[in-house]
């Protein structure tokens, strides 16, 4: 009974004409994505993230390799909700929720949520909120990484670190953002669409069709 519609890749990536006004379901699901991804990070920390913290401190910027996965919320938000501000909203809500739950970075969490969200948001805006394909996902992930790096220059005092460290850290964060947030986020949205969970969203209507 299930068939995948024979849409061409280009048709899949281009959103049909839609209003930019947020529906209630856009807002609530964006918030839910923020909360769920935030929770997943907490669970992940539980499973065995401690080693990364140590690696982050001791290696010269190589800790950035795993940073990307933390940026996935904004990419998911942008790809699923497809409204202006979606990437930013998801990252910001996630940051506020984790600040409320009490994490180590205090108010910085909210600033980094803002910065990462803006990074990803800029990419979707650049494509006028019309295209939501793999390219946009990867660019959004990379941009979120770059934004996080930039903010840390000031907020974490990273400007006081050596140029070699900063260059290495920039490279790893951006690549990590592109792959772990961008590529993984895009694959995740496709898999989510296949479950029918996104049937109220354009992202879900494009990929799969039930006859």
């Amino acid at each position: 009974m299930h068939t995948t519609s024979p849409t061409t890749p280009s048709a899949r990536e281009v959103a049909p004409k839609r209003t930019f006004r947020w529906r209630v379901v856009d807002i609530v699901v964006a918030a839910v994505i923020a909360v769920a991804t935030g929770l997943l990070f907490l669970f992940w920390n539980n499973i065995g993230y401690a080693w990364f913290v140590a690696a982050d401190a001791v290696t010269p910027g190589l800790g950035g390799i795993a940073v990307g996965i933390w940026l996935i919320g904004g990419v998911l938000g942008g790809l699923i909700i497809r409204k202006p501000g979606a990437a930013l909203f998801v990252e910001l809500v996630a940051a506020i929720v984790s600040a409320l739950i009490g994490n180590q970075w205090g108010i910085e969490t909210i600033y980094s949520g803002l910065a990462q969200g803006i990074g990803a948001e800029l990419v979707f805006a650049l494509f006028l909120y019309r295209r939501f394909g793999l390219t946009q996902a990867i660019l959004a992930g990379a941009a979120a990484g770059a934004a996080a790096w930039t903010l840390e220059l000031f907020v974490s005092g990273n400007l006081q670190k050596s140029a070699e460290f900063l260059a290495l850290y920039f490279g790893t964060v951006v690549v990590s953002g592109a792959v772990l947030a961008g590529l993984v986020g895009w694959l995740l949205v496709r898999a989510l669409a296949a479950t029918g969970a996104l049937s109220r969203f354009a992202a879900g209507q494009d990929v799969t069709q039930r006859v």
Binding site: V28, V29, V32, I33, A36, F43, R200
Partner: peptide
């Protein structure tokens, strides 16, 4: 962890959609 994370997202989005309808 990946299978659980994925299922959690599915359930979360479903619940979110229903909650939006209720609201």
């Amino acid at each position: 962890f990946a299978t659980m994370a994925f299922a959690l997202l599915v359930l979360a989005i479903r619940r979110g959609s229903k909650l939006a309808t209720a609201m």
